[in-house]
Design a protein around this nucleic acid. Sequence first.
DNA 1: CCCTAGATGCAT
DNA 2: TGCATCTAGGGG
Length: 222
Amino acid sequence: MSGLVPATREALQALPAEVAPTLLGGELQVTTATGAVTVRITEVEAYHGRGTGAFADPGSHARMGPTARNATMWGEPGHLYVYLSHGIHSCVNVVCGPEGVAGGILLRAGEVVEGADVAHVRRPAARLARDLARGPGRLGDAVGLRHPVHDGIDAVTGADRAGARARLFLRAEPLDQIATGPRVGVAGVAGTDAFPWRFWIPGDPTVSAFRWGRGAREAAGG
DNA sequence: CCCTAGATGCAT
DNA sequence: TGCATCTAGGGG
């Protein structure tokens, strides 16, 4: 944990595209009844909401305004927006930006640095350690956060939510090398270089594979 | 209402 | 490549 500091609301107050790269190399620690797992964050994506001016984001769950599903994205920074993907996977976002403005940073991948034994039990399909949290659904499984019960859990105070506690740590000094590119699996213009809001640690083996979203390849011209 | 597509993972 | 399986949105 050397070189890491607990995340504060202030550190997460800027818009997602600005905060996202600062999460790389940080850690998310989650404790539940079945154990504690810590992941070192290696890949993230920024998602903005409606009404953020030049940063309007057609790929965001909050693009249409506040709904029951995306309510957490509009709230206080530092909470975790946990949503259900394809009816199966629970994916984890760090809420950021000012309260009242939607913003989230999807944790796409990480390296399990603590509690690998617990993570292996939760993800029996993972043969290699690097696959434990490689991909957003896998990461959610590995740390034990589930939709809908853990949606809104506070990663700044570490307060209990449905039997789980989460804590986010950020690097005191930013990484010197960060890679940027289009977001994964996002359709239309939002999935192209017009929104280069995917950030990852170059060369890290836990970074997930890139794939085009439906219609994104055509939108990108290739 | 009914249909579709989705910030996906995994077996085939 | 297809499936699992839930949901928000858009169209009839």
